[in-house]
Amino acid sequence: MLKKLAIIGFGSTMISVGINLFILPFHLINGGLFGISLLLNYLWGFKIGIMFILLNIPIYLFALKKDPFYFYNGVLGAVISGSMIELFFPLNGTVQLPIISSVIIGAILIGVGVGVMLRNHISPGGMDLLALLIAKWTKVNVGVIMVSLDAVIILTGLFLLKDAKLLYSLLIISIIGMLATIITSYRRIQFK
């Protein structure tokens, strides 16, 4: 249990710092329920972490019915991730970098956080949990499923916000998806 909490704490911190320090200042989105939560924040000012937790409820219930193991890990991951986003919110705007640098650094931090959690069968919640379940049933890599779902969310955000800067979000999800794919595909070294 301590190892699981350490992994969730590390992953959630990476995701929260990536979002608050590098993604949020430019009003970008990163896909998944994090992306939908960011979109709701930009449109109506809703709290990102709280919306993230609330949006996860239907997926939690679906996971509970289909696979309780993923449900429990998903609830833990989503509640801690959502809480960490709110905790680290004051970081928003404290670092001033060009948009491309923020996109790359933020995506790397988020990608490492998500990848480490997924590698240990812990979902940060939301679409990642759904992607884990789909990957389990279809044998398609979880990173590929995540990128596909995220692209739909970003294109919806582009349509609603009509801000061409959101195209940078496609780079964000590509980096996150690539890192999640690499981290979840890498075989553990077996020591004899």
Rank of each mutant, 00 (worst) to 15 (best):
M51F: 12
L28N: 06
V17L: 12
L129E: 03
I15R: 07
E86D: 15
G126V: 12
V79D: 01
H27T: 04
N30S: 14
S123N: 10
G157D: 01
S37A: 15
I104G: 13
D67K: 15
M146D: 07
K66C: 08
N141R: 15
A180Q: 09
K4E: 06
S12M: 05
L179E: 02
N73P: 07
M117H: 08
V95R: 01
S123A: 11
K165D: 06
L109P: 07
G18V: 04
I85R: 11
I145G: 01
K165I: 04
G177P: 11
G177I: 13
N41L: 12
I15Q: 08
L64S: 01
F191P: 01
P90I: 14
T181F: 11
G143D: 05
N30T: 13
M84V: 06
P90N: 10
V114C: 11
G113K: 05
D150M: 11
I29N: 05
L87V: 15
A180V: 15
A78S: 14
L40S: 13
I154H: 01
G93S: 10
A78C: 13
V142S: 03
V17I: 14
I99V: 15
I175D: 02
S37L: 11
Q96P: 02
A180S: 14
G93D: 02
I85H: 07
D128F: 13
L61W: 00
I110Q: 02
N41Q: 14
G18T: 05
G49E: 07
G32L: 08
L97E: 00
F52K: 02
M178G: 12
L170E: 00
V144P: 04
A135Y: 00
I57M: 08
M178I: 15
A135K: 02
G143R: 09
L64E: 00
G32D: 03
G35N: 06
R119I: 09
K139S: 15
L28S: 06
L97H: 00
L97S: 05
V116T: 12
T181R: 12
G115M: 01
L87T: 12
P90M: 14
L24H: 14
V142R: 04
N30P: 06
I100Q: 00
G111F: 10
L2N: 09
K136D: 00
K165V: 04
S123G: 14
T138E: 03
N30Q: 11
M14T: 09
M117E: 10
I154A: 06
L179P: 05
G74R: 13
L155Y: 11
S83T: 15
L130R: 01
V147H: 08
I23K: 09
L167E: 02
G49M: 09
L109Y: 10
I175P: 05
I172F: 06
W44T: 09
H27F: 00
I145T: 00
A63G: 08
I176E: 07
K4H: 03
I173E: 01
I50T: 12
K47F: 09
A78M: 10
M127P: 09
L24M: 13
Y168T: 03
G177C: 13
T138F: 06
N41Y: 13
L76H: 00
I99G: 07
G106T: 03
S16F: 04
L21P: 11
L55E: 00
V112S: 02
L161G: 05
L43H: 07
M84W: 03
D67W: 06
V140T: 12
K4V: 12
I189G: 04
